[in-house]
Design a protein around this nucleic acid. Sequence first.
DNA 1: GAGGCACGCGCC
DNA 2: AAACGGCGCGTGCCTC
Length: 590
Amino acid sequence: MSDIPKVIDDASELRAFMAGVADAPFLALDTETTGLDPLVDKVLLIQIGTASRQALVDAQALTPEELTVLIPDEQTLVMHNASFDLKMLAGLGLPIAKLANASVVDTMLTEQVLRNGRQSELSNGRVGLNILAERYAGMTLDKSVRGAFTAMNHISEMGEAELRYAQRDVEATWKVFATQLPMIKSSGLLRTIALEGRACWSWAEMERRGFPIDSEAWKALVTSASDTRKEKRAALDEAFSEVAPRDLFGQCSINYDSDQEVLRYLGMLGLELQSTREQKLKDTGHPAALALIAYRTYQKIVSTYGESFLEHVHAQSGRLHPRFKPIGAKTGRASSSEPNLQNIPNGSEFRGCFRPSGDRKLVTADYSGAELRILAEASADPVFIQTFCEGGDLHSIVASQMFQTSVSKSENPELRSRAKAINFGLVYGMGAAGLAAQIGSSVDDANRLLDRYFRQYPAIRGYLDNSARAAIRNGYAETLAGRKYWFIDRLRKGDDEHSLARMAKNMPIQGTNADMAKLAMARISRAFANRHLDAFLVNMVHDELVVECAGACVDEVREIVVGEMRSAGAEFVTKVPIEVEVNVGDYWSH
DNA sequence: GAGGCACGCGCC
DNA sequence: AAACGGCGCGTGCCTC
């Protein structure tokens, strides 16, 4: 395309263009914005089209209603990093119901799914549009042009270079997907890629809407932790007093945050350790080691969850707008950053600081025992299946069968906790040494326990061993939805085979959990939009979804969330019921 | 002073 | 030495 397409600034012209491309199997869409923040930055240009025909649309010249024609009812929209464009379009005012129901495919996520784990031979795992355009379409995209947009207020400031850049972006996106399409079909990854596309709107909404936080309450917790840290540090100084160096004022000058230093001074106290991790410190039982553990608890709070955490509060919304990576982990799990909302301390007051204003509510729902239900499904173990179908307590049942005595949460709880440690550990591919550390037994005893466990549940052993063998044989592990994680590169690189076997056992379970949670998110967001509810997702923590809604619709919201989470789980797990625990409150809690 | 790595630890 | 899967972040510490 050598000619510069003219910019469309008229609704009828846009409708005419869309009619002209109505028979294309899919349309690529891209936006040029003044920045990355949908609450602050503006959409300058929206590009849409195919490999041969592209339109550049002045986003400011048309009303949101006029722009809705960009989202076709029948055609799939292909975007690179779709959640970004979707949140910017939502910020521009395009109707939520329209955006939520768009058929979306994301070329970036598609690339991640297609290559998951075998990236190293090409581009080192990078999935930028410029990389894919080069690889799949032989196109060179000059990303340096993009910087120019940040300084602009209006499309009229765009010169020929910028317009050409914008045009080539959408053309490249279309061509990239055209190349990916046959790979999707032949790889058996259609279901996974469709799932990722469906969830894009949910990620967009979570990032744009943000998670409500009571900053003052948070600060109070940090201040309190900071005071306690000071006390714990004084106790530490006391415990190290015989060996501590002193500064000019007689103050102890050990840096307790330096593992090197701590190990050195512990050695002077007669404790020769190789590591300062909590379990090792605890094992010594030494007062100095225990004092260090106490200090670390508060140091962690003040550093990771301290004042710097609140720097992420948005000046305009007063809320946290994290970045979600839909495929943050090779298993298929998502991740969150800036800030990470998936590692907020639980069982403390911190979660209580996340509260919406007014009479709005948070609906918190989590899959209960999802990974063990997935293990039951995948292994088809009869005892696991029967227990979950009858609503029994799996850990107690397993313990009573292993130890030939009656076990419940109140009867022989120590046997139940041993069974629980094994049940959960197996999901991680745990061995005897790990179990021994977990339950505080000898490795021999742990071995005997595992033997007994596997004799009782041969289907579990068979399934896990087969997962590991299949991964070595096929070069990949896969979830119940067919999401794959290739081990080729790691095998070639000479990674430890036992480590690979553990990953191969864990990935199908952890990944299936991620698959069902993502499907639930996608369905929940659409249900809210279609019923025009004042409700939206605000966080997801792997097997837990958090929704904010108006108090008036909280009952309907709860029903949708629970219903969609259950039915999404049932798409993958059919032999046992998938159960959801839900809590409604003024703040985030289980 | 920036960048990268290891460690330790918060979550599931 | 550890021996349990997946993340992101703060800190120390090293290199450039």
